[in-house]
Computed example of a mutant assay.
Amino acid sequence: MKKTILMLAVLFTAVAGSYAQKGKVSSASTLKDSGKLDKALEAIKEAIDPNNPKAEKSIPWPRTWEVRGEIYHAIYKSKDENIKKLADDPLKTALDSYKKAIELDEKGKGSNGVKINLTLLINDFTDQAVKAFSDDNYNLALESFENILDIENLPLMKDDAAAVDTVIIFNAGLAAYNAENYDKAIKYYKEAAEYDYNGARTYELISACYTNQQDTVNALTTLQEGFEKYPEASSILVQMINIYMTANKTDDAMKYLDLAIEQDPENASFYFAQGALNDKLGNTEKAVKSYEKALELKPDYFDAYYNLGAIYYNKGVKQLDVANAVPTNKPDQYELEKNKADEEFKKAIPYMEKASEVNAEDTYALESLKQLYYRLKMMDKFDEVNKKLEDLK
């Protein structure tokens, strides 16, 4: 009989020790509810301290970690700056705590409470991400979006009818892009593209990531994939054309430019690009026609006016070289060639004047006009332009 009493006493002592530490968890929860977060944090730290022999029973208890998550979440929500200083990354610590609670809760007894807490955590990670993005803290925004995805991918948070959160996936890509973490940006953008999120724009952003990594091959491959999927997306064509032009692949650039014009014949910028490409190839007459078409569609197109003026200005300069190459003993021929140059300079003036009218502060157009007026001895206009340039300094 004495042995039985002794065994019961030992058992009671062990159970009491277990409840003592679980009581510490309950105490931490009560302190949290009463707003005493510093005391709550001390209590929960004691309950999970592996060096504390009394924590042997509370460490593997799922509720311990759920309460820990609630305390750190409350620290994040606190308006008291002294409380906020208690943790460096309270939301992430709360998430890790809830995940630990799920891991230990093999029977799922506390799953509903943890699920509610995780849902609340998503809201705060979202707020943190939005604020970080507006503060240009793109790394924190990325981490926040990734934590949201981590929560949403937990088995506890998923069901057969759950929709993929493409908005968060895309925003994670956007944050990564702005953080110049292009590998992660590509990863998330590609995932968004699999669900057709944001259409052609997502392919453009993937291509931009590759371009920033100096990977022209994958940049073009991505755009071609996007164009096959969204053949009406002229913006994809524009990026392809720009890459081909930058790489001096003029034949490919012209092919896609013609296709772009076919798709959107009222787009002045396509005709301007066509003009610039023809100008680069030395197809001057075709370039002039393309620029004129751009101006027909967009009468205030500064770049088209300027480039047309530059075409005639450059033709005048070349013709002047011809005149200067005439032997000095042939003054009549020199005058003839020089007059041809002046005719080209005269053609340049209306376009440069119009360019300057569209953008009165552009010094390049004014400098060109200054030289043209001086060349053609139009001194009144020369003085007028010279004064404008002085005023802009």
Rank of each mutant, 00 (worst) to 15 (best):
residue 311 I to A: 01
residue 198 N to T: 11
residue 237 L to Y: 06
residue 252 D to K: 07
residue 388 K to G: 06
residue 372 L to W: 04
residue 115 K to E: 14
residue 231 P to C: 09
residue 209 C to K: 02
residue 366 L to M: 08
residue 311 I to Y: 02
residue 110 G to M: 08
residue 341 A to C: 04
residue 263 Q to M: 13
residue 126 T to S: 14
residue 53 P to D: 07
residue 354 K to E: 15
residue 326 V to F: 03
residue 87 A to T: 07
residue 173 G to W: 01
residue 334 Y to A: 02
residue 248 N to I: 00
residue 61 W to K: 07
residue 113 G to Q: 13
residue 236 I to H: 04
residue 131 K to N: 11
residue 287 A to M: 07
residue 32 K to G: 03
residue 345 F to T: 00
residue 197 Y to Q: 03
residue 207 S to R: 02
residue 311 I to R: 01
residue 47 A to C: 09
residue 229 K to A: 06
residue 258 D to N: 15
residue 153 N to T: 14
residue 101 A to K: 03
residue 191 E to F: 00
residue 66 E to P: 07
residue 146 E to M: 11
residue 207 S to N: 05
residue 332 D to C: 01
residue 199 G to E: 02
residue 101 A to V: 06
residue 315 K to M: 12
residue 336 L to P: 10
residue 259 L to H: 09
residue 324 N to R: 11
residue 284 T to M: 05
residue 42 E to W: 00
residue 244 Y to V: 05
residue 69 G to E: 03
residue 223 L to R: 05
residue 81 E to C: 00
residue 148 I to T: 03
residue 55 A to W: 01
residue 264 D to E: 14
residue 255 K to W: 04
residue 281 L to D: 05
residue 391 D to E: 14
residue 45 K to E: 12
residue 197 Y to W: 09
residue 367 E to S: 11
residue 220 L to Q: 09
residue 229 K to T: 08
residue 97 S to Y: 02
residue 341 A to G: 06
residue 31 L to P: 04
residue 195 Y to F: 13
residue 167 V to L: 12
residue 126 T to Y: 10
residue 301 Y to V: 05
residue 286 K to Q: 15
residue 193 A to C: 06
residue 192 A to W: 02
residue 32 K to R: 15
residue 364 Y to M: 09
residue 28 A to L: 12
residue 220 L to N: 06
residue 60 P to C: 02
residue 310 A to V: 10
residue 63 R to Q: 12
residue 248 N to T: 13
residue 270 F to Y: 13
residue 279 D to L: 10
residue 356 S to K: 00
residue 363 T to K: 12
residue 121 L to W: 03
residue 26 S to V: 03
residue 321 D to F: 05
residue 142 L to V: 07
residue 193 A to W: 01
residue 15 V to P: 10
residue 353 E to T: 08
residue 249 K to Q: 15
residue 16 A to I: 09
residue 370 K to W: 09
residue 14 A to T: 15
residue 261 I to P: 03
residue 340 K to F: 00
residue 6 L to E: 10
residue 68 R to Q: 15
residue 391 D to I: 01
residue 379 M to W: 13
residue 296 E to Q: 15
residue 285 E to D: 14
residue 157 M to L: 13
residue 185 A to S: 11
residue 126 T to H: 06
residue 70 E to D: 15
residue 277 L to D: 08
residue 263 Q to T: 12
residue 243 I to C: 00
residue 115 K to Y: 09
residue 232 E to L: 06
residue 172 A to V: 08
residue 235 S to E: 15
residue 143 E to V: 08
residue 65 W to G: 04
